[in-house]
Computed example of a mutant assay.
Amino acid sequence: MTRPDLLCIGSVLWDVIGRSTAHMTQGSDRPGRITRLPGGVALNIAMAAKAYGMTPALLSVVGRDPAGEELVAALDHMGLVTRTLYRSDDLPTDVYMAVEGGNGLIAAIADAHSLEAVGDKILRPLQDELQGWEGPVALDGNLTADLLAQIAQDPRFAATDLRVAPASPGKAERLLPFLTHSSATLYVNLEEAGLLLHRAQTDAAEAAQALRARGLHRALVTDGPRLAACAHADGVEAHHPPDVMVTRVTGAGDTFMAAHIAAEREGAGPEAALRRAVDAAATYVSGDTY
């Protein structure tokens, strides 16, 4: 039986993405392409981590509807560990829908109602084959505020290498309980950092240091094509992304997080790991492979 080396807890669903190369605003109607791909924050992190040589296990919910059966089959084919998924007989498989233009994300809707409905049932593998887990955990903010607060206080995660992403600015404040967690690392963009700090931040380095000052163990803050930073107990690292043509946006932050986890697993220090993550995200948004 395949033994995972990373747990990815959160949304596992279908991404339906409409992309156009044209500049778009509210009400725009432009030609483009519409794709359906496996997605969700937890799954995006898992797929990227798999590409970097890791073996992620998924803790989430997927329905037993046709969409769910197709999704699990696709994940099995990728080599991800899916036996840890909670399979629901009566809840549909979740879905995310977004529209992207040449000027970035225009709008998105995340239908994660099934994930919210099952609550802590997705954590059941931690009582069975994953009991005593000591490896890294990637946690996404699509979980309910109550479940995230429960995890932040759960003794099973007290000393865990916990990596947390907010999923979207609208869900950033759900991560407030992790600001005082003894070993949590938050991966946020500049807007999300401002929401957690209740004031706008000038740049990623300032935001990362401010999060540390609030008690956070470690903070990684990105700002699109501008400076990215990592604040930790020994200081602050910062790195500017390379200039690239942006062809896609959805999943860039998840790729950043997975690349950073994989780099540290290989022994990279803070500066090298940040550079690896920034470069991986730039490669992703340019449309190239990992």
Rank of each mutant, 00 (worst) to 15 (best):
R212C: 11
A207L: 05
L162R: 08
A204M: 11
A193V: 07
V188H: 00
E173G: 03
S168M: 07
S182Y: 00
L176F: 00
L143V: 09
E192A: 05
L190K: 02
H181D: 03
A208M: 05
R163N: 14
D203N: 15
R212I: 12
S168F: 01
A158M: 06
T160C: 15
R214W: 11
Q201N: 07
L175R: 01
E191N: 10
L195H: 03
F157N: 00
L148H: 12
V164H: 08
G141M: 00
L143D: 07
R212Y: 03
A172Y: 01
L162I: 13
P166F: 00
Q201D: 08
Q153V: 09
P169S: 10
T160L: 13
A204Q: 13
L148F: 07
D154W: 05
T185Q: 10
T180K: 13
S183W: 04
A172P: 03
A200V: 14
S168Y: 00
L175H: 01
G194I: 03
L186Y: 06
F178A: 02
Q150I: 10
Q209D: 11
A165L: 12
L186H: 07
L195I: 13
N142G: 08
L195K: 12
Q153F: 03
A210D: 12
L147M: 13
R214H: 14
L143H: 05
L190H: 02
L179N: 05
L147I: 13
L175A: 00
P177G: 05
A213V: 13
S183K: 15
S183T: 15
L190R: 08
R212W: 06
N142S: 10
P177E: 01
R174E: 01
R156L: 10
K171C: 05
A165F: 01
A159W: 10
A193G: 11
A200Q: 14
G194H: 01
R214K: 15
H198Y: 08
E192W: 06
L162D: 12
A165C: 09
P166Y: 01
R214Q: 15
L190E: 04
V188A: 02
R214A: 15
R212G: 14
L190W: 07
F178H: 00
A152H: 07
L197E: 09
L197R: 06
L196V: 06
L179K: 01
R174P: 04
L195C: 05
A204V: 14
A210N: 09
K171D: 07
Q150V: 08
Q153D: 15
R174H: 05
A207H: 01
R156E: 09
L195N: 02
G141E: 00
N142M: 05
T185F: 04
L147R: 10
T160M: 11
L162M: 12
F178K: 00
S168T: 12
K171I: 12
Q153K: 14
R156N: 07
T144V: 06
